[in-house]
Structures are given as structure tokens and as C-alpha cells.
């Protein structure tokens, strides 16, 4: 079902973006901190004591309080500009249009569906860690025919670092389907 040949759009996008950072590195506006951890564990009703109980956490492998691992992405989330966020389709800030998603939008692949997330943790974050992240395009699939229409699976890898020597603490691989809703049901 894939259209392997003469897919100029895909070739152009790969040539332009593959492996290159998507914008400058993101730096967390705050160090890993207890108030944000507390908000998180209350939101998920997560009562694992290593996130807030210093005495118990000290007796574990972690040697002290650590942040919930799934918060990894939270620390470097951009500070949002709430005014106009709905008009921007929910994007928290103006984004540089020089990116593969915008190019796919412009080519008619307007639909977006998140399909996969993989989080890898090398060490848990501790209060005081300042997290940075860099995101790079990992792949764009061949054009596929899906139940939502024709489209491309686009995969990014975000690498998270912390500490003075930019130790890698985790990675996220994130995949979306960019599809053309007008081609839904097209037989190929």
C-alpha cells in the first residue's frame, strides 16, 4: 500500500529535517521542585512515598525524594501564551513554520493523530535538577493508506539532560499520523 516511488514530498522533508534538532534546546523554567511534584501526585492520586516522603525515599535506591518519572516532559514544557491558544489550534506558542508538521499541513495532510509514546528513563530526576531537552526528527514513514485516509507516520525523539555535565536522564520517542481527511475511504 505504500507508495515508494516518486514521493517527492517525503524525500524533501527527510532531506531537510531528518536527525536535525527541532528548534533550539528547551530549558526548564524551574528546577525540579516539590510544589510541582505535589500537584502531579495529587492529580494522579499517586501515593508512592518516594515522591514526597524524604525519610522513606532516603531508604530506597534513590537515596532521597525523586520526581515521578512520567513528569519528565513536564519540566521543559514551554510557558504558554494563553491568549489566542484556541485560535492557534491549541499550540501554546507561535511556532516556527519551518517544521515537518507545518509542511505536511500545507500539503493537505491536515489531520493529526498521536499513535505511540515510548519513555525511557536512565535515572529519576531529583529536586534541584535543571532539565533541558532537544527534539529531533527520527523518521517519516512511506505514505500509508489508513482508516483515516492517506498519511505519514512522523516520529521524533526527545533527549532529556540534567546536571552540570548534561547527563542524559531519559528519552521520549513520539509518533503521530499526519493524514489527509479528504482521502478517507479511498481505495488504492
Amino acid at each position: 500500500m505504500a507508495d515508494n516511488e516518486n514521493d517527492e514530498l517525503r524525500e524533501q522533508l527527510l532531506e531537510r529535517y531528518l536527525g536535525k534538532p527541532l528548534g533550539p534546546p528547551a530549558e526548564a523554567p524551574d528546577e525540579v521542585n516539590l510544589p510541582m511534584i505535589r500537584h502531579w501526585v495529587d492529580a494522579m492520586d499517586d501515593r508512592n512515598p518516594v515522591y514526597l516522603d524524604q525519610e522513606l525515599a532516603s531508604a530506597t535506591r534513590f537515596g532521597g525524594i525523586v520526581a515521578p518519572p512520567a513528569m519528565l516532559q513536564t519540566w521543559t514544557m514551554p510557558r504558554p501564551r494563553l491568549e489566542g491558544i484556541a485560535e492557534r489550534g491549541g499550540v501554546p506558542n507561535e511556532i516556527d513554520p519551518d517544521n515537518p508538521v507545518t509542511k505536511l499541513d500545507e500539503a493537505g495532510y491536515l489531520g493529526t493523530l498521536a499513535t505511540n509514546s515510548e519513555l525511557e528513563y536512565l535515572r529519576y530526576l531529583r529536586p534541584g535538577d535543571l532539565v533541558k531537552s532537544v527534539t529531533a526528527l527520527e523518521s517519516i514513514s512511506e505514505r500509508k493508506t489508513t482508516s483515516l485516509g492517506q498519511g505519514y507516520f512522523v516520529t521524533w525523539v526527545t533527549t532529556y539532560t540534567a546536571g552540570d555535565n548534561d547527563e542524559v536522564v531519559g528519552r521520549q520517542t513520539f509518533r503521530i499520523l499526519k493524514f489527509d481527511p479528504s482521502t478517507m475511504g479511498d481505495a488504492r
Partner: peptide, 18 residues
């Protein structure tokens, strides 16, 4: 993460969630 550590306990470390 919570679902797994509710079971695995505070000594556990999550390595990967896919």
C-alpha cells in the same frame, strides 16, 4: 506509572513505558 508502582512498591524504578 502509578498503576505499576502501586503494585511494584517504592523500591521499584520504572525503566520504560511504551
Amino acid at each position: 506509572s502509578r498503576f505499576v508502582t502501586d503494585w511494584a512498591g517504592p523500591g521499584a524504578m520504572i525503566r520504560n513505558i511504551s
